[in-house]
Simulated scan of single mutants.
Amino acid sequence: MGLQQSATNQQQINHPQTNSCIQIFCDFDGTITERDMIITLMEKFAPAGWEQLRDGVLNRQIPVQEGVGQMFAMIDTRLRQNMIEYAQEIAKIRPGFSEFIEFVKKQKIEFYVTSGGMDFFVYPILQRWVDPSQIFCNRADWTGDMVRVEWPYACDEQCTGGCGCCKPSLMRKFEHGCKQIVIGDSVTDAKASRLADFVFARSKLIDICQQDGIPYQSYETFFDIMEGLKTITESR
């Protein structure tokens, strides 16, 4: 399911026709889910050595695309079904997400999931709440002996950072005069946050926002974000 849906997204990005002038670009790992699902899967299935790649990505010494690609290349494709089942079993959605989605729909706010995660766990975990057309993530190719990652949303000509799923590139594609809001938690959300009008941040992203002078509000649950959004929607 995920592979086919993601391919559709790659071919055309349609701008929804709404009266809203707010767009939300929301991270998945560690944001919608309480755990970082890539790290969780690597802890369970990857052989020794993946930790150095993780640390290199988090310390911004290795580009995300390079580091994540190498991590998944350590995984035997025969583990596919085990990984799919484990991801759905272990994933815990951050409190308030369901209510947040209802609020966004009611307010006619454009909502997109921009994830550095993989289709085989992002789509199944989100299927209760988010339409596949609103999800942009990477794809896992299981046809060889080891997993190979495909990057349908790689960097555009304005970004050369090897982002993998390039969130600022997606923001530029969707830009049509609306206020753009980023929700995230980590270094993979840094570039998108620098483009945003406002950021909801937690964990490492708070430090980045403070260092770069980016307007932000901290959060722990989606109830916190919803309260912050109410102020923004009331002022538009």
Rank of each mutant, 00 (worst) to 15 (best):
F45I: 11
I22C: 11
R80K: 15
I22E: 03
M146A: 15
R236L: 14
I101L: 01
S98I: 09
M37L: 14
F111Y: 12
E34N: 11
T40C: 09
Q70R: 12
L126A: 02
R54L: 15
S169Y: 01
R202A: 09
G228E: 04
I62W: 04
K92F: 10
D36L: 13
Y219S: 03
E102M: 07
V104S: 02
S133A: 11
T160V: 07
I84E: 13
F222D: 03
L79M: 12
K44W: 07
I183N: 05
S115W: 05
C209F: 02
E43N: 13
I183Q: 04
E51T: 12
M1A: 13
A7G: 07
W129G: 03
P63C: 04
S20F: 04
C137W: 02
M171Y: 03
Q107T: 01
Q81Y: 07
R194G: 01
G177N: 10
Q11F: 13
Q211Y: 09
F136R: 05
D156C: 11
D27S: 07
A46G: 02
F25V: 02
V113G: 00
W50I: 13
G117L: 01
K173R: 15
Q180P: 06
C137G: 08
G228T: 11
K44A: 13
C166N: 09
I75F: 04
G69T: 03
E34W: 00
Q5H: 02
Q4V: 12
K105M: 10
L58I: 15
L53N: 07
I183W: 03
V147F: 07
K106G: 08
E220S: 13
D131I: 07
Q23Y: 07
F28G: 00
E157C: 05
R54E: 11
T40V: 08
T231G: 08
F136M: 09
K173H: 13
C165P: 03
S115Q: 06
F100A: 10
K92T: 15
G116S: 09
M226Y: 01
F45P: 02
G49V: 13
E66F: 03
F198L: 04
R236W: 10
P95E: 14
E220V: 13
Q65S: 14
F103G: 02
F198E: 02
E234P: 00
R94T: 15
P132Y: 04
N59D: 14
G117N: 01
E89V: 00
M42I: 05
G184V: 10
Q210S: 12
I135R: 00
I214P: 00
M171N: 08
Y112H: 06
F120H: 11
Q81V: 05
T40F: 00
Q211A: 14
P124C: 10
E157W: 08
C163F: 07
M1I: 09
R35M: 14
M146K: 11
F72L: 15
I101P: 01
M1W: 06
R78G: 10
Q65E: 15
G228K: 08
S186V: 01
I39G: 00
F222I: 08
K105T: 15
D36W: 01
G117I: 04
D145T: 10
A87N: 04
L3S: 09
V113W: 00
K167Y: 11
D156A: 01
T31I: 11
Q81G: 00
W50G: 08
D141H: 01
Q127R: 15
G213Y: 02
L229H: 02
F222S: 03
P47M: 05
I93A: 04
K173N: 14
L205Q: 08
E85P: 01
A46D: 06
E102K: 14
L53R: 05
